[in-house]
């Protein structure tokens, strides 16, 4: 479209050639390296940081002289916006790089399939199997609660909800999205403290905490997907004499199923890395706890934190577990995108 390549305005002033930024960028980087040589010697971060500032200045000044003030401003804006984007990529890239670099040291099939039984001190063996199982349990419990609850609430909001109750729920679901994870942890902790007593620890508590965080995310994404289903489909179904509930199940949900799956997977990816609520509620264990309703259980994020806290040889396990966690999260995200790309009904777009 024409937005990305704006129409060339009537030319009253001279313009810089299209390739002008490239030599300026190279020159700025070289100059930045030169400046750094005068100081303590160049670092990659320093060259890019100073080079970026120089590029902005040189480009704007040149443009001001050749093209005039309006174009200079435009170029400055382009530079700033582009650098904002590149700047945001730095943490992402460096984080992935560090996690992969430090994670692969201990990451192996054995790491994924052994637990920490009999591992102590500076032993380098051991793995995160128990934590993976724990994460599956806790996230599973959260999903069992949050997914049906979220989907039905979304159905209520889209298909049935009228009046103040529906508006109230919409607002409060949105507000619930912002509940701090540690508050959800405190809630689950006090809930079981009051109902069951102080000695009780289990994956269930963590699952409840995560469900509180997960439900609003599911509601929001499912709601959006249901609203995308064209009304014509519903009306066609009613016209055939199909009752409303069957229309919802067979027409609306079926049309939106790809989007719902995507939303649910992203919701899972969002809560699977939650650390703080699990730190408060389920603690840590060294062996696999197959009982979701009794006993402390290890989870991947808490495992990462505890292993980091122990330091020494355990720090490598922390990084390997962090890598495991990132791989799981990325896979969930990737699969979610693929589902939404390949299984969406064509009419929904």
């Amino acid at each position: 479209m024409s937005v990305t390549t704006p129409p060339v305005p009537v030319r009253t002033t001279r313009r810089l050639p299209r390739w002008a930024p490239i030599p300026v960028l190279v020159a700025s980087l070289l100059l930045a390296a030169g400046i750094q040589f005068l100081g303590d010697g160049p670092t990659i971060a320093g060259v890019f940081f100073i080079g970026a500032i120089l590029f902005g200045i040189i480009m704007t000044v040149t443009s001001r002289v050749v093209e005039g003030e309006r174009y200079a401003k435009d170029r400055l804006a382009t530079t700033l916006v582009t650098f904002a984007f590149l700047l945001a990529l730095i943490p992402l890239v460096s984080l992935l790089w560090i996690v992969i670099r430090d994670g692969v040291k201990r990451f192996s099939w054995e790491f994924l399939t052994t637990d920490m039984t009999g591992i102590y001190g500076q032993m380098v063996e051991g793995g995160a199997f128990h934590a993976i199982i724990g994460t599956v349990y806790v996230t599973g419990i959260a999903s069992i609660i949050a997914i049906p609850l979220g989907i039905f609430t979304a159905i209520y909001l889209v298909e049935y909800g009228r009046g103040p109750l529906s508006r109230g729920i919409t607002v409060l679901v949105d507000v619930m999205t912002g509940i701090p994870s540690i508050v959800a942890g405190l809630f689950a902790f006090t809930l079981f403290l009051v109902i069951v007593g102080p000695a009780y620890k289990s994956a269930l508590i963590g699952g409840i905490a995560l469900a509180v965080l997960m439900t609003p995310v599911v509601v929001r994404s499912v709601e959006e997907m249901l609203r995308l289903v064209p009304n014509e489909l519903r009306e066609a179904s009613y016209a055939l004499g199909v009752p409303k509930w069957l229309t919802i199940v067979k027409v609306v949900l079926r049309t939106a199923i790809a989007g719902i799956t995507t939303g649910v997977m992203i919701a899972i990816a969002r809560v699977i890395g939650e650390t703080a609520p699990l730190l408060l509620t389920v603690g840590i264990a060294t062996a696999v706890n197959w009982d979701a309703f009794d006993g402390r259980i290890a989870t991947l994020p808490v495992f990462v934190y505890r292993q980091y806290a122990q330091g020494g040889a355990s720090a490598d396990r922390a990084w390997a577990a962090a890598l495991t966690l990132i791989i799981i999260v990325m896979l969930l995200n990737l699969v979610a995108r693929l589902v939404s790309r390949y299984f969406s009904p064509k009419g929904a777009r």
Binding site: G118, I119, Y120, G121, T286, Q310
Partner: peptide, 8 residues
């Protein structure tokens, strides 16, 4: 913690 790990 570490000592108990060894003892266990």
């Amino acid at each position: 913690e570490n000592a108990v790990g060894g003892w266990i």
